[in-house]
Computed example of a mutant assay.
Amino acid sequence: MIKGVGITTIWTLDQERTKTFFTEKLGMELRTDMSMGDSRWVTVGAKDQPEFELALMRPDGHGVDPESARALTELVTKGVIGGGALRTDDCRGDYETFRARGVEFLQEPKERPYGIEAVFRDDNGNWYSLTERNEELDLSKEWA
């Protein structure tokens, strides 16, 4: 039986630069940084969520065929890949902190039916929702 999600992939063209982005600009912690044959395994995660990691993976590693690696590199370069939603308890405060650290925002914090959301890009162009969820939100109901 599946117990939850442990690791998800973030595509990067430069693992060292992306590791720095996530640890220094977003304040995540480095979990793993080791060589695995011809590739490198780098993971980061939120300090308060030890059971979940983001694997910072190059498209040309870990068994990705050359044609797929080229396609992934092109998509990352275009900035069309979404990296998911990162939860926060202070979207506006984190927006100001991250912006001061040089994070590129596509959308400043806005009220949404589910809470407050800002959208930013990482150093590769992948985009993320930074979301402060509304505590009164009833996820069993459809949004209008």
Rank of each mutant, 00 (worst) to 15 (best):
T77Y: 03
L86D: 07
T8S: 13
N134D: 15
D138E: 10
K3I: 06
S39W: 04
G82C: 08
R121D: 01
T43V: 01
A55L: 14
E104G: 03
T23S: 13
G61N: 03
K78N: 09
V42A: 08
T20M: 06
F22A: 11
R99K: 14
H62S: 00
K25F: 07
G27Y: 08
G102C: 10
E16L: 12
Q15N: 09
T12N: 03
G61W: 02
Y95F: 12
T12V: 03
W143S: 15
T20P: 06
M34G: 11
M57K: 05
K47S: 13
E104Y: 11
G61P: 01
L139Y: 13
K110E: 05
T12A: 02
K141W: 08
R92N: 13
L86H: 08
G61F: 00
R99S: 14
M28L: 12
Q49Y: 13
T77C: 07
F21C: 06
E16V: 10
L54R: 10
M28I: 03
Q107P: 03
R31G: 10
D122M: 08
V44M: 11
K78Y: 05
L72N: 06
T88S: 04
R99M: 11
G4I: 05
W143C: 12
F120N: 09
A100K: 14
A69F: 00
P113I: 01
S35L: 15
W143H: 15
E67R: 14
D122Q: 10
Q15E: 10
V64S: 00
R58W: 01
T9R: 10
A71Y: 11
F52L: 11
P109I: 00
L139W: 15
V5A: 13
P50Y: 11
T97R: 15
W41M: 02
V44N: 05
N124C: 05
G79M: 08
W143Q: 15
I81W: 00
R133L: 14
S140F: 08
Q15I: 05
